[in-house]
Amino acid sequence: MGRPVAHRTPWSFIWLSVGMVLFLYAPVGLLIVFSFNASPMSVAWQGFSWHWYDRLLSDRAMWEAAQNSLAVATVSSVLAVAMGIGAALVLERRPAHARGMEWVHNLLLLPLMIPEVLLGVALLLFFVIIEMPLGLITVMIGHVVFNLPLAIVVLRARLRKIDPFLDEAARDLGATPWQTFRWITIPLLRPAILSAGLMAFTVSLDDFIVTFFTAGPGATTLPLRVFSMIKTGITPEVNALSALLVTCSMAFIGLSLFVQHREARPLPSQVERT
């Protein structure tokens, strides 16, 4: 509808865009390619090999880190989405016409806006001051802090597309508030819940900074492992681990975007209205 054909975009823009996309993908792409390099030292290509992956997968510490990462990602994304549903409902269905509500909204989204170092430092100080031993629990808490606003944003975007009169219609037809939530809100929100969960899971899986500040001994996650491997010297194993991590997050994000894209189709009541 009224979308201009591609040739109206200046060619220089198109070529620049191709360059930009290459710029965004080439480094990670090269990293993945060279994770299959047989050479232990240099970047000179010495043939294809699964060697580094073999070594990686037979490393017990690596499995432990993977377990930690999964635990943190699962717990933090589930908690974030659960709390996010309630918050998104209130924020979206109740326009922020009161000044106080706007502050609530700002507070809820601020963790996404501030540099992660700040979040890490603040949480570290907090846990030390309240004398909570650093470990997996503290990492999970830290991850919920940034996953919660993320979940709220995704859920709100979906809620905005759901006709608010559907809730009223359900109430009018005799549903209690809980029944309305159970039979109307949750089913309509389901794709967004899934997509927010996947996104939070990925972000948690990938997080380094907050984890770095809040993890105690024995709470090593995969990104922490990558970091210490980089610091102790570059071995091709890092490439393999990096490649695995990137592939994982791309898969999860791809899945999440797919779900979101499907849900982006307008709901019938909206079609009728426009």
């Binding site: 006709d163 009169f165 559907l166 219609a169 009018d172 005799g174 029944q179 019938p268 009541s269």
Partner: peptide
């Protein structure tokens, strides 16, 4: 009392029969 909403507010995730049955089900 029951209401016919201005833009109908039909539940998009339910079939016609499910929409109609909703009140009785509740």
């Amino acid at each position: 009392v029951n209401m016919v909403f201005q833009h109908y507010a039909l539940f998009p995730h339910m079939t016609v029969a499910q929409n109609v049955a909703f009140g009785l089900l509740m």
